[in-house]
């Protein structure tokens, strides 16, 4: 199935959770924020959400800024 992560199409397997996806991408869940179909998630819910075809996910982190 296909999901969209940060505006890029990506394939995900059935049963994969958001926490799995973040792991697979090599990201540290403590350093990012995740929006799942426009809902902002808390860290402890990442493992409870199974990815569905067509999901839209935004993952942000901190960068330098004034």
């Amino acid at each position: 199935m296909n999901i969209t992560v940060n505006n890029q199409i990506r394939t995900a397997s059935a049963g994969q959770t958001l926490a799995d996806l973040i792991n697979e991408m090599g990201l540290d869940a403590a350093r990012i924020a995740v929006e799942y179909n426009r809902d902002i998630l808390t860290r402890d819910t990442l493992a409870t959400i199974s990815l569905q075809d067509g999901d839209v996910i935004e993952i942000v982190n901190f960068v330098g800024g004034g």
Partner: peptide
């Protein structure tokens, strides 16, 4: 200190500011 929030660059992950 101020910081900004941006999409994680999926293909090119930089040294984390934090």
């Amino acid at each position: 200190v101020t910081v900004a929030l941006r999409r994680v660059n999926v293909d090119d992950q930089q040294d984390d500011l934090l």
